[in-house]
């Protein structure tokens, strides 16, 4: 795995927040490299910097110091529009909950990114049908998110994240609002997709189920990498 293509590379990434004028070091010189096809979990206690690191490697936030490459592109050199387009084309996001657009149906939610990409209607429809079948949501196309269970909503989120074939999927506590059975089934699905498609998954979590399934565990503590464990 380590010899494959690099998807994410961070170099001495530091993030300092100001909390009422008091500087807070969220990240302290993080060096991290993630290769294509990894199924990595960034773990650590609350306040360890997991969320900040995920924000920075997705280009949603900028580091105070250090550099980040996504698919060999330095994100600090990208404009807001370029970053938006880059996230749209290369990153799939799965958040804790409430991450679907409530006014769009399941089908519209899943095809939203392809609409932004300008994918033709027929192609969009074909891919939506395929991906919904993949996540077991056939027949739910015209339902709105409020008409779905939590597990079903997360499966739509996974479908949306994967439908445009991004090189990286970032998942922030994707099982936090799910019961263990639903969460476990979803993780199995993601792991299976990882194995089958070679898509890279990076999780931010302290869920034991994710840690058990992850191929690599990056343990953060007080803003720096304390351990980097490979299971394979």
């Amino acid at each position: 795995m380590k010899n494959s293509e690099i998807v994410i590379k961070t170099e001495n990434v530091t993030k300092i927040y100001s909390d009422n004028g008091i500087p807070v070091h969220a990240l302290r010189g993080v060096d991290l490299t993630i290769h294509k096809g990894e199924f990595t979990a960034i773990v650590g206690p609350s306040g360890s910097g997991k969320t900040t690191l995920l924000n920075i490697i997705s280009g949603l936030d900028m580091p105070t110091e250090g550099r980040v490459w996504l698919n060999n592109k330095l994100i600090s050199e990208m404009s807001g529009k370029e970053l938006s387009d880059f996230r749209r084309d290369h990153i799939g996001f799965i958040f804790q909950a409430y991450n679907l657009i409530p006014v769009l149906t399941v089908e519209e939610n899943v095809e939203y990114i392809m609409l932004l990409q300008g994918v033709p209607k027929e192609e969009r429809h074909k891919r939506v049908v395929e991906i919904l079948k993949e996540v077991g949501l056939e027949g739910f196309e015209h339902r709105f998110p409020t008409q779905l269970s939590g597990g079903q909503q997360q499966r739509v989120a996974i479908a949306r994240a994967m439908v445009a074939n991004p090189s990286l999927i970032l998942a922030d506590e994707p099982t936090a609002n799910l019961d263990s059975q639903t969460g476990s089934a979803l993780l199995d699905k993601m792991r299976e997709l990882n194995e089958r498609t070679g898509m890279t998954f990076v999780f931010s979590t302290h869920d034991q189920m994710i840690m058990e399934r992850a191929k690599r565990l990056v343990v953060l503590k007080d803003g720096h990498i304390e351990k980097d464990l490979w299971k394979e």
Partner: peptide
């Protein structure tokens, strides 16, 4: 979420 998944500022 809209911005994160690729909606441009202008959009």
């Amino acid at each position: 979420v809209l911005r994160a998944i690729g909606t441009r500022p202008f959009q």
